[in-house]
């Protein structure tokens, strides 16, 4: 991986056909306090490759926690612990002892609620993930930066000022930059934790367009509590309530004809 000649296509990972299960969550319980209380309880869920899956639910229902389990960001909390069950991504248990969280995160990228570009130039932000993988070749980096910025629909806006600080961009641009930064490492899965909650409606619309573009290349899991957004961007939707998965189905079904009473109450705005 420290070799510059490495191709950027994740050739070493198995190629998945659309609709094949890429993430398999099996009876997962998770705790933030070493198992005293479970934040997530017995969740089982299969996420298909090449689609957009939305997690919805009221605040504190555990949807963000589950998302952070998927690339083991919860490792940063000392007392976090998976109490039961397992998560398999690409048929591999990600909590197995021989799994390297760092390696996992290269395959499972993440975009955060509040856009958080580094206080570096635009170029360096996008190139960051590649640089930490040891790629130094300027040509490879240039190409990857351009490609990622194009894919995230930012290229035309920033191509003349790649060397200026990323903090000078508008909020929506910064968030798209974060997406560009994430896809530059060519992950197979992109996790998005309420990517639009800090943005105005116009910027939100652009991000949603972008998600629609990106679904062709990446499997996307998005947490949102904007139900319209879920209907607009996602193929499948999972509804969580109080740390449990209530219902998981095609988006059209969840919003049109939910099978559970709680789901119906929530999507019709009766609580949450």
């Amino acid at each position: 991986m420290n070799d510059d000649s490495v191709t950027l296509d994740s050739a070493d990972a198995p190629v998945m056909g659309i609709d094949e299960t890429i993430i398999k969550i099996d009876d997962l319980s998770f705790s933030y306090d070493l198992g005293k209380t479970n934040t997530l309880r017995n969740i089982s869920l299969d996420i298909p490759a090449g689609k957009v899956t939305a997690f919805i639910g009221p605040s504190g229902c555990g949807k963000s926690t589950l998302l952070r389990c998927l690339n083991r960001m919860n490792d940063l909390v000392d007392t976090a612990k998976v109490t039961t069950g397992k998560i398999s991504i690409l048929d591999q248990d990600i909590n197995a002892p021989d799994v390297e969280a760092i390696e996992l995160r290269k395959h499972v990228g993440m975009v955060f609620q509040k856009y958080n570009p580094f206080p570096k130039s635009i170029y360096e932000n996008v190139a960051y993930g590649l640089r930490v993988q040891g790629i130094k070749n300027k040509g490879v980096l240039d190409e990857a930066v351009e490609e990622s910025l194009k894919k995230s629909a930012l290229w035309s806006e920033v191509k003349d000022r790649l060397d200026s600080s990323a903090l000078g961009l508008s909020g929506g641009q910064q968030q798209r930059l974060c997406i560009a930064r994430t896809i530059a490492v060519k992950p197979q899965i992109v996790l998005m934790d309420e990517p639009c909650s800090a943005l105005d409606p116009i910027a939100t619309a652009r991000i949603e367009e972008l998600i629609a573009e990106l679904r062709q290349e990446f499997t996307i899991v998005i947490v949102t509590h904007n139900m319209q957004q879920a209907t607009r961007v996602s193929d499948r939707t999972a509804f969580f309530y109080l740390g449990e998965l209530i219902e998981y189905a095609d988006t059209a079904k969840i919003f049109g004809n939910p099978s559970k009473k709680q789901t119906e109450d929530y999507v019709s705005g009766r609580f949450g």
């Binding site: 960001m73 760092i102 993440m110 955060f112 570009p117 206080p119 993930g129 930490v132 930064r181």
Partner: peptide, 12 residues
């Protein structure tokens, strides 16, 4: 947020 972003990109 900075350290989270970096870690999520696969940095050690």
């Amino acid at each position: 947020a900075y350290s989270e972003a970096s870690l999520a990109l696969g940095a050690s």
